[in-house]
Structures are given as structure tokens and as C-alpha cells.
Simulated scan of single mutants.
Amino acid sequence: MLEQTPHWMSRRSTYLRASSLGSVALCIGLWVRGKTVDQSERGNAERRALFVGLWPPTLWLIGDALERHERRHLR
């Protein structure tokens, strides 16, 4: 295996946390957009927002696990 990881690979946990925050913003954007469409399309738009709303905790926890893994291998 590689003794030293490239610089861009050591930041994976940061990228996942940033994507987690970005998906919160996406969820809010989809939810607001769902309120602006007509009644026949509103249910689908709200379901899409709820689906995207499930991503942030998953991405955040994967980022935490990667950070612990990175710390363990940097010692």
C-alpha cells in the first residue's frame, strides 16, 4: 500500500461533510419549489424534497467514520 496518501485523498471527510450541508440546502430548495407548483404536482415535489432530506445524516456519518479512519492512519 501507499505510505503517504496524496493530499486530495486526505480531505474526503471534509468533502462528505460539505456535501451533507449542500444536500440540506438542496432539500430546502426543493421544498420551497414544491410549494410553488400546482396541487397536482405538489405531492411529487414534496416527496423528492423528503428523499433528499434523508441524505445529510448519512453523508455526515460517513464523513465522521472517514475522519476517524484518517486519524488512525496518520499516527
Rank of each mutant, 00 (worst) to 15 (best):
T5M: 14
L54C: 14
E41V: 01
E41L: 07
A65K: 00
G29D: 07
R17K: 15
Q4M: 15
L26W: 02
V32K: 07
R68N: 00
V32R: 03
I62R: 02
Y15K: 10
P56Y: 07
M9C: 09
M9K: 13
L74Y: 03
L2M: 10
T36A: 11
V37P: 01
I28P: 03
T58M: 08
Q4T: 14
G53D: 09
E70Y: 03
L66K: 03
G22S: 13
A49V: 11
P6D: 14
D38G: 07
S10W: 00
I28K: 06
A65Q: 00
T36G: 01
L50T: 10
M1F: 02
S20N: 06
L26G: 06
M9Q: 11
F51G: 10
R75I: 03
M1W: 01
R72G: 01
V32I: 15
L61F: 04
Q4R: 15
E41M: 06
P56D: 12
P57V: 04
I62F: 01
P56Q: 12
L74N: 11
R72K: 05
W31K: 08
R72A: 12
G29T: 09
H69G: 00
M1D: 08
A49Y: 07
F51W: 13
S23E: 13
P56N: 09
L61T: 04
V37W: 02
E67C: 02
R17V: 02
Q39W: 01
R71A: 06
L2Q: 11
L26P: 02
L26M: 12
E46I: 10
A25C: 13
G63P: 02
R12Q: 09
G43D: 07
R42V: 06
S10G: 10
H7G: 05
H69P: 00
S23K: 07
T58A: 15
R75A: 10
L59F: 08
C27P: 01
D38E: 10
L16I: 04
Y15L: 13
E67R: 06
I28M: 12
G34C: 05
H7S: 12
G53K: 06
L2D: 08
R11N: 08
L66Y: 04
Q4S: 14
E46K: 15
R72Y: 02
V52F: 14
F51E: 10
E46V: 07
L74C: 05
L21V: 12
G29W: 02
R75D: 07
R71P: 00
W31E: 13
C27Y: 04
A18Y: 03
S20I: 03
V52I: 15
R48S: 14
E41H: 08
A18P: 01
I28C: 11
W31V: 06
S20W: 04
A65H: 00
S19W: 11
E41I: 00
W8G: 08
T5C: 09
H73L: 05
P56V: 04
S13N: 09
L21F: 12
W55F: 15
D64F: 01
H7A: 15
